[in-house]
């Protein structure tokens, strides 16, 4: 498989997984909450390709399924976790926003993951493992003060920490202009941290920018602040979308799957599409058959 084929396959897997969750919710087969990654897949796939799941660490937020799948490939553990099965990656205790497997963690309180990631980067530095710790935050989370405390410490202490800001222009229902003053990238630069910024849904472009970011952290041991402008096509959670449908439609024209898919050979793409559909169907079947946690 070429790199692009693999990227497309990963993005499609995330997309179909998330669509499946929304369907299962509407069928009443899921309870609780979920925040789907539909539209942002190129970020997770582009960044996480440069990380080694055996060594590097990823800390994600409430919108964590895409990062989890790109890092661990564990669809069954994730789906059964969200479905409240004992086979879930946290035995059903965590649910959609609280995942842990290997070197992957997530937590659902905005901003509170950044201090923990900073501590992880400090520990890995002390241990001399060479690990890069990557933390994903949204634009809305730029309102949390702890994030700035941590940019300060990561820079002061030269920590191998990659902060990825996924600016999808909304925090729940609040548009960016009501919540984020000034320039996003400048926030990292203000602490003497190397930064980059990209407005793209092209997974190959994101892959290249992320390569430079991860390489920087790996070779210098210093933090990096990477701003990825993006968009989510689906509601914040479920049925809570108040955005202009016209705006969403315009963004959908730049769907990362369309951008990458157009570069693939038609037959190859059809084969990947089919394989992903099959994988998702099998995962749903297996998770539905798994024992209910606490039963």
């Amino acid at each position: 498989m070429t790199l692009l084929e693999r990227q497309y396959e990963q993005m499609l897997t995330i997309r179909r997984f998330e669509e499946t969750l929304l369907r299962l919710f509407s069928e009443g087969k899921l309870t609780g909450t979920t925040h789907t990654y539909i539209g942002q897949e190129a970020d997770a796939v582009g960044v996480i390709a440069h990380l080694d799941p055996e060594r590097d660490v990823v800390f994600s937020n409430h919108r964590c399924h895409g990062h989890y799948i790109a890092f661990t490939g564990d669809l069954f553990g994730l789906l059964s976790e969200v479905m409240g099965r004992s086979t879930g990656t946290c035995g059903g205790k965590g649910g959609s926003q609280h995942l842990h497997r290997g070197n992957f963690y997530s937590n659902g309180v905005q901003g509170s993951i950044v201090p923990v990631s900073t501590g992880i980067a400090l520990a890995e530095k002390e241990k001399g493992t060479g690990a890069v710790t990557t933390v994903f935050v949204g634009d809305g989370t730029l309102g949390q003060g702890a994030l700035y405390e941590c940019l300060n410490m990561a820079s002061l202490w030269s920590l191998p920490l990659l902060v990825v800001v996924e600016n999808n222009h909304y925090a729940q229902t609040t548009p960016r202009h009501l919540a984020v003053a000034g320039d996003i990238r400048a926030r990292g630069a203000a602490f003497g941290i190397e930064t980059d910024e990209l407005d793209s849904t092209d997974v190959e472009e994101i892959h290249s920018a992320a390569q430079r970011a991860v390489d920087h952290v790996r070779t210098t041991g210093r933090p990096f602040f990477l701003v990825l402008h993006t968009y989510r096509f689906s509601p914040h959670s479920k049925g809570d979308d108040f955005r202009d449908p016209e705006e969403i439609a315009q963004r959908r024209a730049h769907d990362p799957l369309l951008v990458a898919g157009a570069r693939l050979d038609g037959d190859v793409r059809a084969r990947i599409d089919e394989a992903v559909e099959r994988l998702i169907a099998e995962t749903v079947e297996a998770a539905e058959a798994a024992p209910v946690a606490g039963a």
């Binding site: 950044v114 201090p115 501590g119 992880i120 941590c150």
Partner: peptide
Amino acid sequence: GVAAGMAL
């Protein structure tokens, strides 16, 4: 949180 991350 930094202490928690180190402990993890």
